[in-house]
Design a protein around this nucleic acid. Structure first.
Lengths: 206, 206
DNA sequence: GTCTATATAAGGATAGAC
DNA sequence: GTCTATCCTTATATAGAC
């Protein structure tokens, strides 16, 4: 550990920004709050990222590059298997997100940031996400289409959309269900993922 | 029509605030933007609502009072029927929201504001919503419990939570599915509601 | 109830010393 | 790369005339 702060200025800004964006939204969290939380100077944000908008994009990039990679990796495994199931494809999408959310402290927070991105109908942000990570969703849609050949393209897309809705909502902890007192955070989230796969598979099969 | 503006200052502020909150979030929309869009003086907000936070609550109250009333009305009808079905209870919850979203211009916008409220883990706002409208969710949960007696309480609540997620996401137009060129907004939303009921019923039955 | 004017605070961004 | 100091804009809120 080279510094008493353990992480570089850049990383500390990203961590603090992630947390504050999750809690207060992109507009609601100011750069002053971010730099104070990261214990760096206010000017450091502009030095390292150029602007608040760039900082926002970097917060996404840091997590989504790896998340997308893991999802596609697991999907490829499933596609190589003899008899892929709907549940296996759903697992390939959901489990990497679950693992991220259980990772370091930042992970579970990031899922809330991601949900914020959906709420923002901000076209710049949407374009950034679609340009950089849209291909992942496309590959999954193709896998689902192979497993549900009786569904029309229309029908399939509607159902996938609703499945993404349930997933987003659940992963971002929007719901009313609270963790029980005797339960660890890990147990709670694993339960959630299990219910999510089960519920969504049924909805897709309908 | 007493004025050239047709609506009172108060109503115009509520309408403009709703639209801007949907588009930019609660923190992202300033009172200056709201009053400019409503074509009223900046000071009018504080005169009529006291503060920005109060204005936010009134935006919710204006729509949710009626929405909750209609949902409970339809649920009571379903409960009086000889053989209530899962789909009928889901309809009782979803159709009033669909009707609101098809109402005047404001309706569809409000659904996005409501979704923003989920993204805000703001405890004041959550308390306001839970205190004033929590009883509606409770009554629906009881109706679902009667129709799905084989599910444990735990299992039921998880599934309801995921159903609310899909609903929230769909109604707020978070999804990727765009309205087709040859389709009216009404047709698009009715399609969505149909898929929503079907998908959710399957997920609940699992 | 609606206006102008203003108090007061906070925002993003940058210049320039170190 | 990091600091202080500051520019300039925007924010919420209010006071007081009409």
């Amino acid at each position: 550990m080279p510094h008493d702060t353990q992480f570089s200025t850049r990383q500390r800004i990203l961590g603090a920004a992630e947390e504050l964006f999750a809690e207060r939204g992109f507009a609601g969290a100011s750069l002053r709050q971010v730099t104070a939380a990261a214990k760096v100077n206010l000017a450091a944000v502009n030095y390292h990222f150029g602007s608040k908008d760039n900082l926002i994009e970097e917060v996404f990039r840091r997590r989504l590059d790896e998340l997308s990679h893991r999802r596609l990796e697991r999907l490829a495994e499933v596609n190589r298997s003899v008899a892929p199931t709907l549940e296996a494809v759903l697992d390939a999408f959901i489990m990497p997100a679950l693992e991220l959310s259980l990772d370091r402290e930042g992970g579970s927070v990031f899922m809330r940031v991601l949900a914020r991105a959906f709420a923002e109908h901000n076209s710049n942000l949407r374009k950034f996400l679609s340009d950089n990570y849209g291909h992942v969703l496309k590959e999954f849609a193709a896998a689902f289409a192979r497993l549900l050949p009786h569904l029309s393209k229309d029908e399939l897309y509607w159902r996938l959309d609703l499945a993404v809705g349930a997933l987003t909502y659940a992963m971002a902890d929007f719901g009313m269900i609270q963790r029980r007192s005797g339960e660890t955070e890990r147990q709670h989230r694993e339960q959630m993922a299990r219910h999510l796969v089960h519920f969504t598979a049924a909805g897709l099969r309908a």
